[in-house]
Design a binder for these strands. Structure first.
Length: 160
DNA sequence: GCCAACGTTGGC
DNA sequence: GCCAACGTTGGC
C-alpha cells in the first residue's frame, strides 16, 4: 500500500465536503506529473492525507482512501468547464483520475506550520522548497507521523 | 495583493 | 530543441 498527499482548496472542495459526499472524483487535475501518479501508481486502498491549500491556515484536515481504478476525467470533454481540454482526444484521453472516499477527519487539524516544525517530516515533498505538485507521494513513516501529530496536542510553536 | 518558483506554449 | 513570454500555484 502506498501513501499520498492530495491538495484541495477548501473554498472549492473541503474535507467536510468529502465527508458529506461520501465519495468524489478527483477531477480537474491538469498537471502531467500529478496525473501520472493517479494513472500509474495509485491503487485501490492507498491512503491519502487530505491537505487544504490556499487556506487560513493551510494544513492536513483528514484521511481519505483511493477507491477506484484510474479512468478518464470527464471534465476534460466539457466545453463549459474551465478545465475543458479541447486538445484531448476522446479515443485517447489526456487526463486520468481516481475516486477517493473519506476515512476519517483527523482528531484535529495539523497546520503547515506544525508540519514544518516536525523533524520526522523534514523530507516530506510538501515541505521542500518550490514543491507545488497537488498530488505527492509520502512515505508510510511520514503518513504515520502526521496521523500521530493529529492525536496529540500541538507542539508549542515559536509564533503567536 | 505580492511574488518566487515552476510548468507550458509557441515562434524560430 | 531552445528559450522568452506567459500562466499557475500557493504561502505569506
Amino acid at each position: 500500500m502506498r501513501y499520498w498527499l492530495m491538495k484541495s482548496e477548501p473554498n472549492v472542495y473541503s474535507f467536510d465536503d468529502l465527508l458529506k459526499d461520501g465519495r468524489t472524483m478527483w477531477d480537474s487535475i491538469r498537471n502531467y506529473q500529478a496525473r501520472n501518479f493517479m494513472r500509474d501508481d495509485m491503487k485501490i486502498g492507498d491512503q491519502v492525507l487530505f491537505y487544504h491549500s490556499n487556506a487560513k491556515p493551510p494544513g492536513v484536515a483528514g484521511i481519505a482512501e483511493v477507491v477506484s481504478e484510474p479512468y478518464p476525467d470527464p471534465v476534460q470533454f466539457d466545453p463549459a468547464s474551465n478545465y475543458h481540454d479541447p486538445k484531448s482526444d476522446p479515443d485517447n484521453p489526456r487526463w486520468i483520475l481516481v475516486d477517493v472516499k473519506p476515512v476519517e477527519a483527523l482528531p484535529r487539524f495539523v497546520s503547515l506550520e506544525e508540519l514544518r516544525g516536525a523533524k520526522s517530516l523534514s523530507e516530506m515533498p510538501l515541505l521542500q522548497r518550490g514543491q507545488r505538485l497537488s498530488i505527492q507521494p509520502v512515505t508510510a513513516a511520514q503518513f504515520r507521523a502526521v496521523r500521530k501529530m493529529a492525536s496529540k496536542k500541538p507542539a508549542a510553536s515559536s509564533g503567536s
